[in-house]
Each structure stands twice: as C-alpha cells, then as structure tokens.
Amino acid sequence: MHRLDQARDHVIGLYRIVIGFLFACHGLKTLFGLFGAKSTAAVGAWPGWWAAVIQLVCGALVCVGLGSRIAAVLGSGSMAYAYFVVHLPAALFPIQNGGELAAMFCWSLLLVAFIGPGRFALGNLAVRQRTSEPARARATA
C-alpha cells in the first residue's frame, strides 16, 4: 500500500467538488452573463441554452455529491456532444478548434462517474443513515 492511498477518498472528493464547481460556473456564465461573459444564450436556444442548464444543474449536483454519478454521466455526454458537433468540424485537435474545455470536462466528469464521489458527498450521508438504521433498530429491540 502506498502512503498516498490513505488520502485517496479525500482527494477524490475534493476533485469532484472542484470539477462540479467549475462546470456549474461555466453554466452560470452562459445563462446569466456572470464572470465576465460577453453575452448570454437566448432562453430555450438549442444547443447553447440547454447545454448551460445541464452544466449548471449537473455541476451543482456533482459539486455537492448528490446523484453525482448520474449527473457526471449526463454532463460528460453533453460535453462529448459539444466537442463532436460544435468543435470537431472546425479542426481535429482541441487546441486548434477551441474544444479544450469540452474535452477536459467530458473526461473529468466521466472519471467522476466511474470512481464515485469520494468523501464530502451529501449522497454518502443518505447511505450512512440507511445502513445505520437497522443497527439502531436492533439496539433498541
């Protein structure tokens, strides 16, 4: 066992929080013109407005760790769509077609979906409560 393995779940949790926060900020920027955005997406416009809604909702869920695997898969898929439909036609490589963020978010969120939320996830509280309820019931019986 490597000595860094002791911090694995904590680092995964922090990674999830940062990725989720950044993804949500990307959605906020597009939806509400925050963080120095030059424009916003028109309400209901395909695909920009819908992508921003996915970014905001999925990013927030991933950040807090509630339904994080499902939210990460949905967010990853939306970024794969963005890369292949919006960026790839312009050039092959992300550095040439402006798709670096789409590619990074796609793979980062896919990683969260596969490795799980790690520590500090609200979803872990619900699991802990469900597993401790039978123990409490046995103790009071």
Rank of each mutant, 00 (worst) to 15 (best):
L31Q: 12
F32W: 11
L34Q: 14
L34E: 14
F35V: 06
F35C: 03
G36K: 09
G36I: 01
G36D: 01
A37K: 03
A37N: 01
A37E: 11
K38A: 15
K38T: 14
K38S: 15
S39I: 02
S39Q: 06
S39D: 10
S39A: 13
S39H: 05
T40M: 13
A41G: 06
A41E: 15
A41F: 10
A42I: 04
V43C: 09
V43E: 14
V43A: 15
V43M: 14
V43G: 08
A45P: 09
A45K: 05
A45E: 14
A45W: 02
W46V: 07
W46S: 08
W46K: 05
P47D: 06
P47R: 01
P47N: 04
G48N: 07
W49P: 07
W49R: 02
W50R: 03
V53C: 11
V53D: 05
V53T: 04
V53I: 15
V53S: 04
I54H: 00
I54C: 10
Q55I: 09
Q55H: 09
L56V: 10
L56P: 14
L56S: 10
V57D: 07
C58P: 00
C58I: 05
C58G: 08
G59V: 05
G59K: 02
A60L: 13
A60T: 09
L61S: 10
L61G: 04
V62P: 04
V62C: 13
V62T: 06
V64G: 12
G65V: 04
G67E: 03
G67T: 02
G67R: 00
S68G: 07
S68Y: 02
R69Y: 14
R69A: 11
R69Q: 15
R69M: 12
R69P: 05
I70Q: 06
I70S: 03
I70R: 09
I70V: 13
A71Y: 10
A71H: 02
A71E: 11
A71P: 08
A71I: 07
A71R: 05
A72G: 11
A72F: 00
A72Y: 02
A72C: 08
V73T: 06
V73M: 08
V73E: 07
V73A: 11
L74V: 14
L74S: 09
L74E: 07
L74D: 06
L74I: 14
L74M: 13
G75R: 04
G75C: 08
G77K: 03
S78I: 04
S78K: 00
M79L: 09
M79D: 03
A80Y: 00
A80E: 03
A80D: 01
A82H: 10
A82R: 11
A82Y: 15
Y83G: 14
F84T: 11
F84G: 05
F84D: 11
V85E: 14
V86C: 03
H87W: 03
H87K: 05
H87L: 01
L88Q: 08
L88N: 06
L88D: 03
P89N: 03
P89F: 01
A90L: 12
A90V: 15
A90E: 15
A91G: 04
A91F: 06
A91H: 06
A91T: 00
L92H: 09
L92T: 13
L92M: 15
L92V: 09
F93C: 00
P94R: 05
P94Q: 07
P94H: 03
I95H: 09
I95D: 07
Q96W: 02
Q96N: 01
N97K: 14
N97W: 00
N97S: 13
G98F: 00
G98Q: 08
G99T: 15
G99H: 07
G99D: 15
